[in-house]
Amino acid sequence: MFAELLQYLFAGLTSGAIYALAGLGFAIIYNASHVINFAQGEFIMIGGMATSMMVAAGLPLPLAIALAVVVTMMVGVALEKFAIEPARNSDVVTIIIITIGASIFLRGLAQVVWDKEFHSLPAFSGETPINVAGATLMPQSIWVVGISVLVIVALWWFFNRTLFGKAMLATSFNRLAAQLMGIGVKKVLMVSFALSALLGAVGGIVVTPITFTNYEAGIMLGLKGFSAAVLGGLGNGLGAIVGGLVVGIAEALASGYLSSAYKDAVAFVIILFVLFFLPNGLFGKKGTDRV
C-alpha cells in the first residue's frame, strides 16, 4: 500500500521536476520583460536534440553538452535581438504571437537541420533502479531533481547577490525607474533570454535520457512549463518549481488512483480550482490596476 503510494510519488517527482525546469524558464523571461515566451519549449528541444545529435556524431558527452548549451543560448539571444527587441513597445498579445511564430520557425528549422526521428542519450549514471521501501527510482530522475535544485540556488544567488541580478530584478518591478537609475534595460532583456535558453537547454539535456526527444518534444514541455509557471504565480521562480511538482504529482496520483485517461484533465482542473481562489497563482504578487 505504502510502496504503491511512494511509487506514484516518485513518478510524479520525475515528471514534476521536468515541468518545473520548463516553468523556470518562463518565470525568468516574464520577470525581466513581462513577456510569455512560447518558444521556451523549443529551447528545451534544441538542448536535447543538439546534444544527442552531437553524441551520435561521436563527440564526448561533456563536450556535446557544453556546445549544445552555447548553441541554445545563441538561439535565445538571436530571438531576443531580432524578434523581441524590435517589437518591444508592442502589445503583449503581439509579442506572444511573435514567440508562437518563433516556436513554429524553430521546430521547422530543427526538422530540416536534423530529422524527425526520436533520439536519446545514455543515462548519466547507469540504468540500475534504486530501491526505496519497495518503490523504485531511476538514477536519472535524481539528476533531474538535483539539477533543478542547483538551478534554483544559483538563480537565487544571481538575483540577490550580484549587481546585475539585482538590476534585472529592479527592471521587473519598474522598468522606467530602473532605466532612470542607469540600468541598461536592453541588456537586461537580452541576458534574461540567454539565461532562460540556458535553463531550457540544461533541462532538455537532463530529461532526454528519460523522455527521449524529437523536433516536436518542446510542444508538450512548453505547455506543461507554462502551466507550472502560472500555477505557481508568474515571475516567481519558487512558484514555478512548486507548480511543476504539483502538476506532476497530481498526474501520477490521478493515474494511480483515478483514471489514467483523465490524468491531464485532473491536473488542469486543479489549476483552474487554484486560480478561482488565488487569481495570481500560488505565490504570485497581487497586482494593482492603475486607472
Binding site: E4, Q7, Y8, F10, A11, G12, T14, S15, I18, T136, V207, I210, T211, A217, I219, M220, E251, A252, L253, S255, G256, S260, A261, D264
Partner: peptide
C-alpha cells in the same frame, strides 16, 4: 486496462497499478 498520452514522460504510475 490502462492508458497514457503519447508525450508522457513517465508511465510508472500506470504500470504500478498493473503490477499490483
Amino acid at each position: 486496462d490502462e492508458v497514457y498520452s503519447p508525450k508522457d514522460p513517465d508511465v510508472t504510475a500506470q504500470l504500478t497499478k498493473i503490477k499490483n
